[in-house]
Amino acid sequence: MAERLEIPAQQWRRVSPRYILVDVVGALVFTVVVVGAFGAVAALSDTGWIWYLAAVAGVVMIIVIAFIPRRVRSIGYQLRDDDLLFRRGLLFQRFVSVPYGRMQLVDINRGPVSRALGLSDLRFVTAAASSGVSIPGLPLAEAEQLRDRLVELAESRRAGL
């Protein structure tokens, strides 16, 4: 019964496996901050049960980190004839289809860890705030190439709002 969603499509293009490292580093930093904060409160207030909270947070984050490789592998996109199809998510799956003509702008962002690994994030912005198409972990050259391709496609299929 419990089937995963699948869109009949050709080949999904995946993001760089190096992005796993970026995500793991981010999650680790977050874990250190959260567990550290709980720990500090527990140590200062000398109440035992807050230590349990810190432990629970730590365990949850370890599970999250364990799933990062699969989650990153679930991110995919493909340039179809008239629209960009994007997917991500493991537990919470999400597919988005954006017609090229709807593009308002394309952003390329690079965080510190991403930059160290030569990766960048590409964001496809439409007039709707909720579209939320953001393809992380693309090698810079590929991201720039994809950006130029998307702009070109959007030009040829220009549409009103």
Partner: peptide, 29 residues
């Protein structure tokens, strides 16, 4: 249809057990 910005299909764990899905039609805010 000419005003749709993008379309999204979503499924969380509960919906997966029930074999259901959620559809969003994105328009301007």
């Amino acid at each position: 249809e000419p005003r749709v910005q993008s379309v999204a299909l979503r499924q969380g764990p509960l919906y997966r057990r029930l074999s259901l899905a959620h559809l969003d039609v994105h328009t301007v805010t």
